[in-house]
Every structure is written in C-alpha cells, then in structure tokens.
C-alpha cells in the first residue's frame, strides 16, 4: 500500500470524529428544554402548510443530467492530460476530437434551452 493512502484512510476516520466532537460537546453542554412550538418548523413566521417534502420541477433533473455527461467525459480526459509527454500529435488530435464532442453536447443543450432557468 502507498503510505499516503494509508494516511488518507486514517484521515477519513479522524476528520468526521473531529467535526462531531464539538457538536456532541455542545449538545450536552447546552440547555435542553424542548417544547412543541420550539421544535416546530420555522417558515417565514407563517403557519406551516403540509410537508416540506414536496415535488420539485424537472429543471433540477435536467441540470444534473447534463452535469453527469460532462463529468464522465472529463474524467476520461485526465489520463490523457497526464500522458501528454508520451502522446504523438495524432493522439493529441484524438483528445481534441473528444473535447469537440463535449462542445457539441454543450451547444445542443444550449440551443434546446435545456440550460435556461425559467420560473
């Protein structure tokens, strides 16, 4: 094992503990006098209507979708960039073709108004 990754593994266990410690201390140090009104939801001072877990509009989904496509393509490009010294010219051009495909995806989504936010 690479020692750096062992260190990161240790860090992955320690960091949440360090973040949780003050919360726990605060939880037990502070007063604890709950009552129904205090524990109710605060929404602009008006009485709460229904559950918060309501239906959302399709736009969020669309943005996540476009983001997913971009993410997958970009992850492919990282090894290409790292290997840059080993690449002949046409390999660089292949990478460029890949990026142009990405650009085409962006332009399509743009022209279809999938990137427009509306209310």
């Amino acid at each position: 094992m690479d020692p750096t990754w062992v260190f990161i593994g240790v860090f992955f266990i320690l960091a949440p503990l360090l973040a949780a410690a003050p919360i726990l201390i605060g939880h037990y140090l502070g007063p604890h006098k709950p009552n129904p009104i205090k524990n109710d939801v605060y929404e602009c001072g008006l009485k709460t209507v229904g559950d918060a877990w309501v239906r959302f509009k399709v736009q969020y989904y669309l943005f996540a979708l476009v983001f997913l496509i971009f993410d997958v393509e970009l992850v492919f490009l990282y090894p290409w960039a790292v290997a840059y010294d080993m690449l002949p010219t046409f390999a660089v051009l292949e990478g460029l073709l890949f990026i142009i495909m990405l650009l085409a995806a962006l332009i399509y989504a743009w022209k279809r108004e999938a990137l427009d936010w509306y209310d």
Binding site: Y61, V72, E73, M101, A105, Y108
Partner: peptide
Amino acid sequence: ASVLLLAALIGAVYVAW
C-alpha cells in the same frame, strides 16, 4: 464513448425537456 455520451445527452434532453 464520446459519441455515445453525446447521444445520451441528446436523448435525455429530448425526452425530459
């Protein structure tokens, strides 16, 4: 793969939006 992802995007946007 890049063409596939492009097609996936076009399809998804076409269906969802």
